[in-house]
């Protein structure tokens, strides 16, 4: 039997949907039993959410004041200790998981599969390399523990309706004092979270200015969408980096992705290829974005976007 421990991501109040996607991934490992571990200062609320995910056997809570912020140097020794009872340890390939999981792997002296995109067997997986241009199948030694970050865009979230047992855990791991949390600045917005939104409107360099991004915000608000940006638009200063979609930004899988004034560089396409429907609006009919778009419209975005918004509103 395989025992899989999933490192849950949360902000103290809400379990990140990436966790339920890791559960789906772990669920495809043959003969597996799934536990979720949550580290925090008070994980009562998020533990209840984790316990409700279908397919989860148990939820482990590790509450202590040092765990208030997700610092890899603090979390890793505790998770390395808890990993003793498991064959696999998975985390999401979000900035949280990417920062944390390799530190655990090194403490355990085991390899990590990054961006696991499909399970081919209990120790055989597919993952992307070269910005998604080459997909490799890798095989790990069953004699060793295996760590992985799960490419969340490749998996649907597991459904609710579960009733896992919740238990409190503590570890004897010594925690370092060399790393301290100072603060965070989020582009606080009422719009849906880009990473988990079902609808995303995204803009490229053709928008021409930060001011013109308001066109996209207006359309996005009308259809309840998150707003993204290409790396070119971020580099040009039209949008903040947390809006970046692509290999070096966020990899997303919304139901609909509307790419406006985005030419479709390979590194951008890597970030959106799991979107169910891609719509491209661009004045250059030869732009690579049209190679992957399900629906394309060649024309001037400054006319098309307000007109589309008007039609949707009518």
């Amino acid at each position: 039997m395989h025992k899989i421990l999933i490192v849950g991501e949360h902000d103290g109040k809400t379990l990140n949907p990436a966790t339920a996607k890791c559960v789906t991934c772990a669920g495809s490992i043959p003969d597996g039993e799934i536990a979720i571990v949550l580290l925090g200062s008070d994980t009562a609320a998020v533990a209840a959410q984790a316990a409700a995910i279908a397919g989860v056997k148990s939820v482990l809570r590790v509450d202590r004041s040092e765990n208030e912020h997700p610092l890899a140097a603090i979390f890793a020794p505790q998770l390395a200790a808890l990993a003793a009872d498991y064959t696999h340890v998975f985390g999401p390939s979000t900035s949280f998981g990417k920062d944390l999981m390799p530190r655990i792997a090194a403490l355990l002296g085991v390899p990590q599969v990054s961006d696991l995109m499909s399970v081919e067997g209990a120790y055989r997986f597919k993952r992307p390399t070269y910005a998604g241009n080459a997909i490799v199948t890798v095989e790990a030694d069953p004699a060793r523990k295996l760590l992985a970050t799960v490419r969340v865009a490749s998996f649907q979230a597991a459904t609710g309706g579960g009733s896992a047992a919740i238990e409190s855990k503590s570890t004897a791991a010594a925690l370092p004092s060399h790393t301290r949390y100072v603060g965070a600045k989020s582009g606080s917005t009422d719009r849906p979270d880009l990473q988990t939104a079902k609808r995303v409107v995204s803009g490229g360099r053709a928008l021409g200015s930060a001011e013109n991004f308001k066109l996209l915000f207006s359309l996005a608000d009308q259809i309840g969408a998150a707003v993204g940006a290409s790396r070119a638009a971020v580099d040009a200063g039209y949008a903040p980096n947390e809006m970046q979609v692509g290999q070096t930004g966020k990899i997303i899988s919304p139901d609909i992705y509307i790419a406006i004034g985005i030419s479709g560089a390979i590194q951008h396409l890597t970030g959106i290829k799991d979107a169910r429907t891609i719509v491209a609006i661009n004045k250059d009919g030869e732009a690579p974005i049209f190679e992957v778009a399900d629906i394309g419209l060649v024309g001037d975005l400054f006319q098309i976007v307000p007109e589309l918004e008007r039609l949707i509103g009518s």
């Binding site: 992307p128 390399t129 790990a140 419209l297």
Partner: peptide
């Protein structure tokens, strides 16, 4: 520790339609 057993190109998306 991780043996690469196969390398393949990514699945291609079907080309879609252009609207007027």
């Amino acid at each position: 520790l991780l043996k690469t057993v196969k390398t393949e190109p990514p699945a291609q998306r079907q080309k879609g339609v252009l609207v007027k």
